[in-house]
Design a protein around this nucleic acid. Structure first.
Lengths: 123, 123
DNA sequence: GTAAAGCCTGACATTAATGTGAGGGTCAAG
DNA sequence: CTTGACCCTCACATTAATGTCAGGCTTTAC
């Protein structure tokens, strides 16, 4: 299939599909006219890429995963474990940071509300 | 004081101090030679800016807050409430998103570990 | 007076995935 | 054969705060 069809089937923009190829995540054939020719399973490949992107992985990290997955013909691949674990740690740190900021924010909001109630709203 | 001293006292880079000025967060006087002249309380101003930045507020949002705080001579200022609340909501959404991703990640990690234990590691 | 250190402006680089547009082939239907 | 839809590459723009460099003043210390 051509790139436009793949784009429609996956929701990924044509621009993104070309970018994924540039980053080594897709390798469509080229027809004589220069057009990219995608195999039907490219739809699943793109869906996988979208899923990994949603996990917060970079295209470089995804490239490593896909290479491994291709070799093992299976989505469960030992080599992605350290990547997943690293990402999990990153996310936990982000959540902790956000939680701290959240606490700071609610404290400040409470302080404003307290100030308001003390200074009186009898106008 | 000159910009270098303010930078030392606050930890903000000279580049950042100039940027804050460009964004309307600081308004140092200019000496005859063109040098910026900062009042002593600029140290506290910069510390406030750094705090707001750590809360995840943009310089544009901070500009609004500082304007209000300047008028009211008090850090507790009604007009910042909606900004804080919006930011709080943003952060809650981010935390929720990250939590979902985290769940997805742990699921995948568990699946890999399960796969490993099933396929056997008796080598 | 000279050298070093400090300051100035302006401008480009960084990150990462994606948008967008120019300029130009290709294909399909009429 | 023409028109419109599709494809190609190349390249610049986006975001936001900060880094960094160039070219050029000023101040300070010697």
């Amino acid at each position: 299939m051509n790139i436009g069809e793949l784009s429609s089937l996956t929701g990924a923009s044509i621009r993104s599909l070309r970018y994924y190829e540039q980053k080594g995540l897709l390798s469509p054939f080229r027809k004589d006219n220069g057009y990219r020719e995608y195999a039907p399973f490219a739809v699943e490949q793109v869906r996988s890429i979208q899923l990994y992107l949603n996990l917060g992985l970079s295209t470089d990290e995804i490239a490593g995963i896909l290479q491994c997955v291709l070799k093992n013909k299976e989505a469960f691949c030992e080599e992605v474990l350290p990547i997943y674990r690293q990402k999990l740690q990153d996310i936990d740190e982000q959540i902790e940071l956000l939680t701290n900021i959240r606490q700071n924010l609610t404290d400040r909001i409470d302080a404003i509300l307290l100030e308001r109630s003390i200074s009186g709203q009898e106008e």
